[in-house]
Design a binder for these strands. Structure first.
Lengths: 203, 203
DNA sequence: CGCGGCGGATGACATTTGTCATCGGCCGCG
DNA sequence: CGCGGCCGATGACAAATGTCATCCGCCGCG
């Protein structure tokens, strides 16, 4: 049986290289390409057409989920999976919606990762049980589209006037959205609301 | 010549294992212990007395700099170095003050890391040039002790009343400190001030 | 000693913000 | 069609926040 062709994308050279070395020990896996950024991952995927793309969630250029979304249409035969250090519930949801078939934290061992790559390659899915539980208990975002959008624009702590300008909205409207978002999240002000939404992966 | 005994501390199992495997390829290095948290790193160091401790900056329990500080007094013969994904200028300063002899981002390759471990073991220092440049250009924190302290308490976006209570200060005083901190940082409000201070590693 | 800087506080004031009621338009659904 | 929900806005009001001047005590330094 021919080996599974793997694409590895992670911006941390140290980890990527180390990972490649460890996966090379598995004789049914072969790392055919490596990338250090989102766009580079896409380019490498197009060039090498891997069976499985292992993507870090946080990368410069485009994050893992964005890359997975593009790959889904460009290379339908390529399975994608996400590896991440900070597993937030919302990210898992977004990833699954993007057609990602595996979602694991970096706390797994290399052997486990290899096994999961095989699982994904076989067409099955794998999601870290802990993350899955978090995602289920966290539930869906109660925020409407605009609420989330405005909250994101306010994420850097900018005054409402700035946010309103960037959103092309009235200041009053922005305040209303932020107020309702904060109350939905149980926050006392928009800043803690931003933090809470971040923790749940809703922004 | 006897090999360099290395302690590896990183909470991400995947990376730690991969790193251990890669370092094992260097025949003058031997990983004698691994740890997944700050306290565990200390315990392992006491038990195995490594020559060099390679510490991740962000770990549960106690961060890399705290561990390095403890090691400095407990095991003076053990050189310490920090490996990190997000290299912020202030962290570098704190690390050097704690007696850390190496500070590198995770974007280096395994070969480079091995070389740096040797450098550190030989008693020399190594700091990533890019990070060093950032640290120098960022300069020292303009904040007074209390300003930084109050800013940290306000970091979660809590209202001033809460911060004042936690700091055992008057609300007016808290507002004054936050105001002066924000103006020193060139921020329009305390929330962006917090963000800026974070980016520079001053909190 | 005198000066300056910091910690801590108060009061007054302007500004920003949060909150609420209300309005209109649009769209989907029973 | 009528209802409800979301989007967008306005106005008014209360509360939180930012800003400034001023005060006191302490400590280090020339």
């Amino acid at each position: 049986m021919s080996p599974v062709r793997v694409l590895l994308a992670d911006d941390e050279h140290l980890i990527r290289g180390a990972l490649a070395a460890l996966l090379a020990l598995e004789d049914d896996l072969v790392v055919v390409a490596e990338a250090a950024s989102g766009p580079e991952a896409l380019a490498m995927a197009r060039a090498h057409r891997p069976d499985v793309a292992v993507l870090d969630l946080q990368m410069p250029g485009a994050d893992g989920v964005k890359v997975a979304t593009s790959l889904r249409t460009e290379l339908p035969g390529c399975r994608t999976m996400i590896v991440t250090s900070h597993g937030r519930p919302g990210h898992l949801k977004r990833a699954l919606a993007a057609g990602v078939r595996g979602f694991v934290p970096k706390t797994v061992s290399a052997r486990q990762l290899a096994e999961i790559i095989r699982t994904v390659h076989a067409g099955n899915r794998f999601v870290d049980p802990e993350l899955a539980a978090d995602a289920i208990s966290a539930g869906d975002s109660p925020l409407t589209a605009r609420e989330a959008e405005v909250l994101e624009l306010a994420a850097d702590g900018a005054p409402i006037a700035d946010v309103a300008e960037r959103a092309s909205l009235s200041q009053g409207t922005v305040r209303n959205y932020l107020s309702s978002a904060a109350s939905k999240l149980g926050a006392e002000n928009r800043h803690t609301a931003v933090r809470l939404a971040r923790e749940r992966g809703w922004v």
